[in-house]
Amino acid sequence: MRVLVVDDHPLYRDGLVTAIAAMPEVDVVGDAADGLAAVRAAAELAPDVVVMDLHMPVLNGIEATRRIVSERPETAVLVLTMLDGDDSVFAAMRAGARGYLLKGADREEIRRSLQAVANGEVVFSSGIASRVLAFFAAGSPAAVAPFPELTEREREILDLVARGLTNAEIAQRLVLSSKTVRNHVSNVFTKLQVAGRAEAVAQARDAGLGAP
């Protein structure tokens, strides 16, 4: 099994690489410190599994997962993160991740999870699994919102940006000042780690926002 390890903390990443490389029949083919580097490495190294952190610079793990799965559907993404909120879990699964573990997972749990996602199965840390089952038992999977790092207002404004509205038009529609809208748009760009409006619109539409 070929594995790519992605995490922005050097000490943790190095330790994870060492631990995974010691597992039988596993070859760590590379590592990356940010989401964009992960997308490039996945394209170049063709791993079977990418172990992905979520909170990273340049490109967050959710968007990196979305791009990797889109470009290489045969590659499985196993999230390994400190973020345990429902928004993060469901955003990762919507992006195409096949597993979600918390960083408290021990070596054996990581080994089993790597094998499972490589075989096409879906895995969760035990505490998360019970919440996922409860969520779907409630019959509301459509309620999961993309971009969990955004506030509700920021997500609303991103949706309007993706519909093609200018800042002035958004301000008029939401009865906000132009300055407030500019601040929200700037915060959205920062959180999504995009360079400008066009890139934000592309990400938003990929996630289902901006529909008429």
Rank of each mutant, 00 (worst) to 15 (best):
M1R: 02
R2E: 08
V3H: 01
V5D: 00
D8M: 05
H9C: 05
D14V: 07
T18S: 11
I20Y: 05
A21N: 08
A22N: 10
A22S: 11
A22L: 09
D27R: 11
D27Y: 08
D27K: 10
V28E: 00
V28P: 01
V28A: 02
V29W: 04
D31N: 10
A32D: 03
A33S: 15
A33Y: 14
A33D: 12
D34N: 09
G35M: 06
L36T: 10
L36S: 09
A38L: 03
V39W: 01
A42K: 03
E44M: 12
E44N: 11
L45K: 04
P47S: 07
P47V: 05
D48I: 07
D48W: 02
D48Q: 10
V49L: 07
V49K: 04
M52G: 06
M52N: 04
M52R: 06
L54S: 08
L54I: 15
P57I: 04
G61W: 02
A64N: 03
T65H: 06
R66E: 09
R72E: 13
P73G: 06
E74K: 07
A76R: 00
L78F: 02
V79A: 01
V79R: 01
T81K: 08
D87Q: 09
F90W: 12
F90A: 09
A91F: 05
A95T: 05
G96W: 10
A97M: 04
A97Q: 03
R98T: 07
G99K: 02
G99I: 01
Y100G: 00
L102V: 08
K103S: 04
G104I: 09
G104F: 10
A105F: 12
A105M: 12
E109M: 15
I110V: 15
R111H: 14
R112S: 15
S113L: 05
L114K: 03
Q115M: 15
A116E: 06
A116N: 07
V117Y: 00
V117D: 00
N119D: 14
N119T: 11
G120H: 08
E121C: 11
V123F: 12
F124N: 10
F124M: 14
F124W: 14
I128Y: 08
S130W: 12
S130E: 13
L133V: 15
L133Y: 14
F135D: 09
A138M: 12
A138E: 14
S140L: 11
V144Y: 08
P146L: 05
P146T: 04
F147W: 05
L150G: 00
T151I: 05
E154N: 08
E154Y: 05
I157K: 01
I157W: 01
L160I: 06
V161K: 00
V161C: 00
A162V: 06
R163K: 14
G164T: 03
G164Y: 05
T166M: 06
N167L: 12
K179D: 15
N183K: 10
H184V: 01
V185Q: 02
N187W: 03
N187H: 13
V188E: 02
F189M: 10
K191T: 02
Q193Y: 11
A195L: 13
G196T: 07
R197S: 03
A198K: 12
E199D: 13
E199Q: 13
E199G: 09
A200Y: 04
V201A: 04
A202M: 13
Q203E: 12
R205S: 08
D206N: 13
D206Q: 14
G208T: 07
G208M: 11
L209S: 03
G210A: 01
G210W: 01
G210H: 01
